[in-house]
């Protein structure tokens, strides 16, 4: 399966996500300058780079949690242009096609695990309670959390909470999953549970964009590696190649720092 993924070339298949000339600044502080990116159907793109490089901002611009100053975002045919005003309808459509997983899970603590996964299905997709719960239980089972359905998130470990968050996002049937440092708030042992789930997800052909510091994941699971620094993409390509033979001096410095610690 993994082999097959690598052979898929981003140029020949219709991209699910396209980001064109994205730019953003907070006052005089430029956080993104002219970022363009395209993610092929069924591929896994890993984004790495030093903190402050703008990786998370790119991801958060993709579903407009951050408003870019200029540029264009197309996800599954839903196009958002930073210059024009976005209608709530097209924003909702875009967000429905992109599932997001956060560093700090962002579950709703006052609802049970099952409600966390079911509520968005009811409100966003208009499912009935029974339909939603059935789908939620199926996903929780897949995440190995069927026994946690009636618990509250605070009673679950960090790794479990993150898997609940993944189930919650998957329940809406997204075309692409965006992961914003999904294991950074977890201790390494627990992070593995989450990485396993993500690997399984990748192997089923889910399109994924992952901002991460997990180099092993980037190397073994990703089809495309994007290296960012100072608000721009400095290098992208096959992960093995970049990790073995980085072209850019900034990439070399970053890789030395993360790999030789």
């Amino acid at each position: 399966m993994e082999q097959l993924m690598i052979e898929l070339n981003p140029q020949t298949t219709q991209p699910v996500v396209q980001v064109k000339n994205l730019a953003k600044a907070y006052g005089s502080n430029v956080v993104l300058r002219d970022v363009s990116l395209s993610v092929a159907e069924g591929s896994v793109t890993a984004m790495i780079g030093p903190s402050g490089a703008g990786k998370s901002t790119v991801l958060r611009c993709m579903n407009l949690l951050e408003q870019p100053d200029s540029g264009e975002i197309v996800i599954d045919g839903h196009c958002i242009n930073a210059g024009k005003k976005t209608s709530p309808k097209s924003l909702a459509a875009l967000r429905r096609s992109a599932g997001m997983v956060f560093q700090h899970f962002n579950l709703f603590p006052h609802m049970t695990v099952l409600r966390n996964v079911s509520l968005p299905q009811e409100r966003v997709l208009g499912c009935s309670r029974e339909q939603a719960n059935e789908k939620s239980m199926e996903l929780l089972k897949r995440m190995g959390l069927a026994d946690k359905a009636d618990q509250y998130p605070s009673r679950c470990s960090g790794g479990q909470q993150q898997r609940i968050a993944i189930a919650r996002a998957l329940a809406l049937g997204p075309r692409v999953m965006l992961f914003d440092e999904p294991t950074s708030a977890l201790d390494p042992e627990v992070g593995v549970e989450v990485l396993e789930v993500m690997k399984e997800l990748a192997s089923t052909g889910m399109t994924m964009v992952v901002v991460t510091h997990e180099m092993a994941f980037a190397e073994n699971v990703a089809d495309e590696l994007v290296v960012m620094a100072d608000g721009g993409i400095i290098e992208k390509g096959h992960p093995g190649q970049i990790l073995k033979d980085p072209q850019h001096e900034r990439t070399r410095r970053f890789l030395r720092a993360v790999l030789e610690r």
């Binding site: 700090h104 579950l107 709703f108 968005p120 966003v124 919650r168 996002a169």
Partner: peptide
Amino acid sequence: GEIEGSHALGMSYRDCLRFV
């Protein structure tokens, strides 16, 4: 973060207020 979470799920502003 929870408000962002509900936005990222595509929940409307009203639903976010009402449920979260």
